[in-house]
Amino acid sequence: MNNIRHTVPDDLLMGYAAGALPQPFDLVVATHVSLSDDARARLAGFEAVGGAVLEEMEGAALADDSFDRTLARIAGKAPEPYRAPSRGIFPTPLQRVVGGDEGAVKWKSIGMGARQALLCSEGEATARLIFIPAGQAMPQHSHRGMELTLVLKGAFRDDGGLYARGDLEVANEEVDHTPTAEPGEDCICLIATDGRLKFTRLLPRIAQPFFGI
């Protein structure tokens, strides 16, 4: 929980706090924050700014029966229960999208033992899970726009160093990287991109339209 070495940058946290991120990025940030106390504290700081902005607003006129209708909405509904965090590998926000933990993922093979599952998209942005067998490289790729990679299981290494569970790598389009799963354990990552990934080697580039990476 507290050994996160690579964490989310402030502008993404503020974007999350303000509700300005596309859904796939929201998912990665919410999942990362679930695993990192530092990110949680920084996010709370940006949400406090939102609270202060709300507090300073000049109020809008409410409907005459606004309060009564609110009471009517309240009546008969039980208090919202506390939701205990997940016990699985996937934190709760991810489990909600997947429909369960690791075992519920509908993987599709992308060759050489690697697998992926598309989770959600909004505009050009997509979120997917990637499974890389222990010791193997993810197909070499670059991408338009920003790419967030959050490690959920195992670890990978690339030019930026070693990334283990809870670590988040932020890559821009200049990065032409080849994350390689550490030996010993298969690696599962949650990845959000705001442009299509482009594979840089010939074969994967041909395969790209079929796999929709």
């Binding site: 509700g19 859904q23 998912l27 609270g51 926000p93 959600c120």
Partner: peptide, 24 residues
């Protein structure tokens, strides 16, 4: 702050039509 987060999440649910992922 708390009220802001509740309002922001409902805003996204309603205006952008997806259930907002929240940290656990």
């Amino acid at each position: 702050t708390w009220i802001f987060t509740v309002a922001r999440n409902r805003k996204i649910d309603l205006l952008r039509r997806y259930a907002r992922p929240e940290p656990e």
